[in-house]
Design a protein around this nucleic acid. Structure first.
Length: 224
DNA sequence: AACCAGGAGACAT
DNA sequence: ATGTCTCATGGT
């Protein structure tokens, strides 16, 4: 079995299903994807809560109608609030102009990806998160945890680019149940990263040690 | 009290 | 193509 598949099985055994993304609606999922950029999820939760206290049914058009100043104030706890105000508005503008899910759901994954990457504030990871968790398209998400964990397992170099790593992961996960498997793997990697596997000396009893190329050796793990 | 957190864009090289 | 700087809050 491929390494990505073994990691998925191992983490699933250890932590169980994660049923991501943790959002009640598809649109809130997209908002969360912007807010969580380089930011702890606990801070995003505070921002989302304040947002929803003002706008109970979180919709793109309603969000756009809000004065940018007010929006910035509401999402402040998520950090980078001035930047993210512009990014959220850009995402909402795109969403509304495109006709919402009604129209977007009919598009191909390639079209959506190209479109999303053209939106201000949406990079590779945010686009792929939205595709996988918001549109249930078979696209693996690569984040800092993903790169760190697989490079510390000795599977890839820390410098590997976003696309090469995504393609390597997707190739290793086979063609069956791609959406649910990509979903679980990414969510499990995040869950696992928060618990262990940060620094090697702390990694003595990590559930991935059986798979790790470095376990039992003194060779230094290359830092990202 | 430094360090980090589910990145992306502008800009220089 | 690749590297560096900036953006900001809240928890350890």
């Amino acid at each position: 079995m491929s390494l990505p598949a073994r990691v998925l099985d191992t983490l699933y055994q250890a932590y169980g299903p994660q049923h991501w993304w943790p959002a009640p609606t598809r649109f809130e999922m997209m908002v969360g994807a912007i807010l969580t950029q380089n930011t702890a999820w606990t801070n995003v939760e505070k921002a989302l809560e304040k947002l929803k206290s003002e706008i109970p049914t979180l919709e793109a058009s309603t969000l756009l109608a809000l004065p940018p100043e007010r929006l910035a104030e509401l999402i402040r706890p998520s950090g980078y609030f001035r930047l993210k105000t512009g990014r959220l508005r850009a995402l909402c503008q795109w969403f509304v102009d495109a006709g919402g899910f009604e129209c977007l759901d009919g598009r191909t994954t390639k079209e959506l990806r190209h479109d999303l990457l053209g939106v201000y504030g949406v990079g590779h990871e945010t686009a792929d998160s939205i595709l996988l968790y918001g549109f249930e398209r078979p696209v693996m998400v690569v984040d800092a945890y993903t790169r760190r964990i697989f490079s510390r397992l000795g599977a890839v170099t820390p410098e590997i680019g976003y696309e090469p790593l995504r393609e390597w992961l997707e190739a290793g996960l086979g063609t069956k149940d791609r959406v649910s498997r990509y979903n679980e793997l990414h969510a499990l990697l995040v869950r696992h990263a928060k618990i262990s596997c940060r620094v090697r000396p702390d990694c003595a009893s990590c559930v991935l040690c059986d798979i790790c190329a470095y376990s039992g050796s003194d060779e230094a793990i290359p830092e990202a």
